[in-house]
């Protein structure tokens, strides 16, 4: 096969919805992989024109500048409440929020619970990296027991700081939830499962069933103080032991 007899077909290229240029995530962070999944799912469902995204504070805040859809961001905590307002004013739009564990589990827990109880027709992308990544790795509600962070230098002790927060199970226990699942992107196979879960969640919102939530496990290499490849082992051995992967709820209809 000579070089001039060959044409090149693109198998894998950056998605169209991702605006060109570098992003600010640290080397080895999986947020970039999740951002790519989000772009691909929105493109495949063909909802670019209807989608509105709300980002929270923290590392996902700057996704407003990376995605080529309507976005508002930088609100630490009440992202779900703002998304509720947008969805109720414009019911034909597809509204998604991108929030971290410190928002949904701590400062924004009130808004999150209220939206869950009302069964708002939103999609929440919940990024769980077991620490407050942006501000220097303090203990978050999702920090594993015994894990050392800057505010728990002896390891997290449940007697003083409580037990880890399980957002996906909490959402699955609510009657207004249409889809709830926890996924990870630390291997190619898990990445494909994560894409399927994210697409199912958006599909449930398009059908207008109820609240949908996808929880993503992600590493934080600088704050965990591990190399990118050791982070994959840590997710496999420690994170998945505490936060089991899977689909906790997927219903086509909610009885009112």
């Amino acid at each position: 096969m000579r070089a001039e007899d060959v044409v090149k077909q693109v198998v894998c290229a950056p998605p169209k919805l991702k605006l060109p240029g570098p992003h600010h995530h640290c080397p080895g962070c999986h947020y970039g992989i999740i951002l790519r999944l989000l772009c691909e799912v929105i493109e495949e469902l063909g909802i670019e024109g209807q989608a509105i995204g709300i980002t929270g504070g923290g590392c996902s805040a700057r996704w407003v500048a990376y995605l080529d859809v309507d976005m508002a961001g930088g609100i630490h905590g009440p992202g779900v409440a703002i998304a509720t307002a947008i969805k109720r004013i414009y019911p034909e739009t597809i509204v998604f929020t991108i929030q971290g564990d410190g928002e949904l589990g701590a400062i924004g827990l009130g808004s999150f619970m209220a939206a869950l109880l009302r069964g708002e027709k939103l999609t929440t992308i919940y990024l769980n990296n077991a620490c407050y990544g942006t501000t220097g790795g303090q203990m978050a509600p999702t920090t594993l027991l015994g894990m050392r962070t800057t505010t728990t230098p002896q390891g997290r002790d449940p007697r003083t700081t409580g037990f880890p927060f399980h957002g996906a199970e909490l959402a699955a226990s609510m009657r207004g939830t249409a889809y709830s699942g926890r996924v990870s992107v630390h291997t190619p196979a898990n990445r494909q499962r994560a894409k399927k879960a994210l697409r199912a969640a958006f599909q449930r919102q398009i059908e207008g069933v109820g609240y949908t939530l996808v929880e993503f496990l992600s590493p934080c290499p600088p704050n965990w103080q591990l190399s990118p490849s050791d982070c994959l082992t840590f997710i496999e051995e420690k994170m998945i032991a505490e936060y089991p992967l899977g689909e906790f709820k997927n219903v086509a209809q909610i009885d009112y």
């Binding site: 096969m1 007899d5 060959v6 044409v7 090149k8 077909q9 693109v10 198998v11 894998c12 290229a13 950056p14 991702k18 570098p22 992003h23 995530h25 080895g28 962070c29 999986h30 947020y31 970039g32 992989i33 790519r36 992107v185 190619p188 990445r191």
Partner: peptide
Amino acid sequence: NACGVCGWMCPDFAITVYKYIEIEEA
């Protein structure tokens, strides 16, 4: 073999994967 996995798993959108197709086949 142009499977594309490196492009999927690149967090920085840095990899583009091309598959060679011979002209008769194309």
